[in-house]
């Protein structure tokens, strides 16, 4: 049962991601992206990471995607139209390259046989928290600086725009 859900969900995640490649309208793309992200959240849950599943829903689907949609709407208001999908001139080599890269990764990743297949053990929020605020404490502090830097950058760039 577990496996079926897993593979089904991964299929959804992959197909939704693939859809971004071909849809025309950015809003559609954003929605497919959300679907893919949510499917991924479910995969995280199935892989024993409930905290990350929740964060994925909240942070990605909830926060970042809203930004995307916001921007799409602002830009669409101005342009008022979207073009029909036309693949760019040199798409064949690019597509072949991507395909080739995937095959390559697949071959490399499956070289070593996966030895043990046990039950899923949930690594819960507590374990993650212990790791975050134990050995990785400094990294968390550093991330705070990172977010602050991003904030400063965005504030500056957006302030400019108003002038």
């Amino acid at each position: 049962m577990h496996e079926i859900i897993f593979y089904l969900t991964s299929a959804i995640a992959v197909i939704a991601a693939g859809a971004i490649l071909i849809v025309r309208h950015p809003v559609h793309a954003a929605i497919y992206l959300i679907v893919s992200l949510l499917a991924l959240a479910l995969l995280f849950f199935l892989l024993g990471a409930p905290l990350l599943a929740a964060l994925q829903v909240m942070l990605y689907a909830g926060a970042i995607m809203v930004l995307f949609l916001f921007l799409i709407m602002m830009m669409n208001l101005r342009t008022g139209q979207n073009r029909p999908l036309s693949l760019p001139a040199g798409w064949v080599p690019a597509a072949l390259l991507a395909l080739f890269l995937w095959l390559e990764l697949l071959l490399l990743l499956t070289r070593s046989p996966s030895e043990k297949v046990g039950d899923v053990t949930t690594i819960g929020p507590k374990a993650v928290g212990n790791a975050l605020f134990g050995p990785y404490l400094l990294v968390v502090e550093a991330v705070a600086v990172l977010l602050l830097a991003a904030l400063v950058a965005v504030l500056y760039l957006s302030r400019r725009r108003q002038k």
């Binding site: 550093a142 600086v145 990172l146 830097a149 991003a150 400063v152 950058a153 965005v154 500056y156 760039l157």
Partner: peptide
């Protein structure tokens, strides 16, 4: 790497 990169974007 990222703390280095993100300020650079701006």
């Amino acid at each position: 790497l990222e703390i280095l990169a993100i300020p650079l974007y701006a």
